[in-house]
């Protein structure tokens, strides 16, 4: 997580239930599709500290060093929405943040990545971990920013790749005619 500490620019707006950040890179693919280099998540149930803690916890569960916080914030958004709907979820999240801070003798967020990770591992069997995991495994990988990062066109493939490179791999020999078939001639 070392380079993550450098790249993360999220900061907390004191007293406001908003989680904000700035894209770590203004030259990457994300900058091309993002409407703005800074982002803000208005929170419904969590406070900014809790949200930032959950975001960082998610980074430990699914560590993609070059994936921007803006994408992880989508996970926080879904967890926050769940907490707003369901008091049990809200309690689970807020209790977990408090336990992380207590176990760190201060703010878990201020500890080193290695020290943070020890706490993440210790919580692997908890409902909180399961909630973050099951939410993140969907939210983190099911959005246009993640698609851009991992190189998946998603809905852009809807018309079909027949004229857009479905067979453009040329670092291996092409199969012979008997193993393949003709590309249909279209009008």
């Amino acid at each position: 997580m070392s380079d993550h500490a450098v790249s993360r620019r999220a900061f907390l707006r004191a007293g406001g239930a908003v989680l904000t950040g700035t894209l770590a890179s203004t030259s990457g693919v994300l900058a091309l599709i993002a409407p703005s280099t800074s982002w803000a998540l208005e929170l419904e149930a969590l406070d900014a500290h809790q949200a930032a803690t959950v975001l960082q916890f998610t980074r430990h569960v699914f560590p993609h060093d070059r994936l921007d916080d803006a994408v992880y914030a989508l996970v926080v958004k879904d967890l926050d929405a769940g907490a707003a709907e369901d008091p049990t979820t809200r309690r689970m999240l807020t209790d977990a943040v408090r336990r992380l801070d207590e176990a760190s003798g201060g703010e878990w967020l201020s500890r080193s990545a290695a020290e943070q990770f020890v706490q993440v591992q210790a919580m692997e069997a908890t409902p909180f971990f399961a909630k973050v995991h099951s939410t993140a495994v969907v939210s983190l990988y099911d959005n246009d920013m993640a698609f851009a990062h991992f190189g998946y066109p998603g809905r852009k493939g809807d018309p079909g790749y027949i004229h857009r490179g479905f067979n453009d791999l040329h670092w291996l020999p092409d199969p012979p005619d008997g193993a393949s078939g003709p590309v249909p001639e279209t009008a």
Binding site: F166, N167, L169, P175, A179, S180, G181
Partner: peptide, 15 residues
């Protein structure tokens, strides 16, 4: 009926 044309994923399998 002809076979379908090979896509990238199949090219790897076939090789």
């Amino acid at each position: 009926l002809p076979g379908l044309p090979a896509n990238n994923n199949f090219k790897v399998m076939h090789a």
